[in-house]
Amino acid sequence: MNNSQTPLAGRVPAQTDELLVVENLGKSYGDHQVLGDISVTVRSGEFMCIVGPSGAGKTTLLQCLSGLINPTSGTVSLRGKVVTEPPAEMAIVFQDYSRSLMPWLSVLDNVMLPLRSATKDKAERKKKAMEALIEVGLKDHVEKYPWQLSGGMQQRVAIARALAYAPAIVLMDEPFASVDAQTRGDLEDLTLKLKNHLGITIVLVTHDIDEAVYLADRVLVLGNKPTQVVDLIETHLGTERDQISTKATREFAQLRTRVYQEIRHGDIPSSAGSVAAPAAS
């Protein structure tokens, strides 16, 4: 479906850098079809944002991608292996940091816990966790408890926990939806920095169009009931992005308008398509 939109992009990297391949993914609960027929390929090292109207089953899609729930039809494969349970090369950052961190463990212990099975040496675990915490700017807060930190800092802990796990791919489920606007901007820039710094692949689900365009190398636009792929857009905004100057560019505005229209109409608008298409290509 999306291949017709980006025929070149679909063909060229096929052998080289396909990391996460989603093929004809569908999920139903009884008669209720949540996910339609979704096919998309996440390339190694890219930042993909999944955006769609609220109630579009974005979170269900993410759960299927991570193997937390099994799809009704189709497959998800990571590096060629079909995902049936959460793979070791994958980490998730959830929206609700207050519930996804353990209040009975310190920040450092929260980050170290997932490393217990793979890294037997405690000093080694601590080293990895500290590196991740330094990376997200929490060096001075490692002995505190999550509930002693602000929301933005708690989400940084969750990000550090994902990083310390050293995954090939990080899934983020509306990670910045529960923090204030200023913090959100900071966390977006932190995430971009980490992605460029560490070369990890990120798939981020959001309902915020600006956020999706600002962060993504490619934006996957989803339509509603059942959820399906409307469009897959290359942003071409470069690796260095800035909250003020990038969002002020003409390209950003065009992308934003295009995604907005696609979400509103649940389809690629024929009138807008001719305007928006050059911006994407």
């Binding site: 937390l68 959460p86 994958m90 959830f94 519930r99 996804s100 997932p114 217990r116 099975s117």
Partner: peptide, 14 residues
């Protein structure tokens, strides 16, 4: 907490 159960599954904690 169900979300924590997921966290434990995602990070494959023993």
């Amino acid at each position: 907490e169900p979300l924590l159960k997921w966290v434990f599954r995602v990070f494959r904690i023993s």
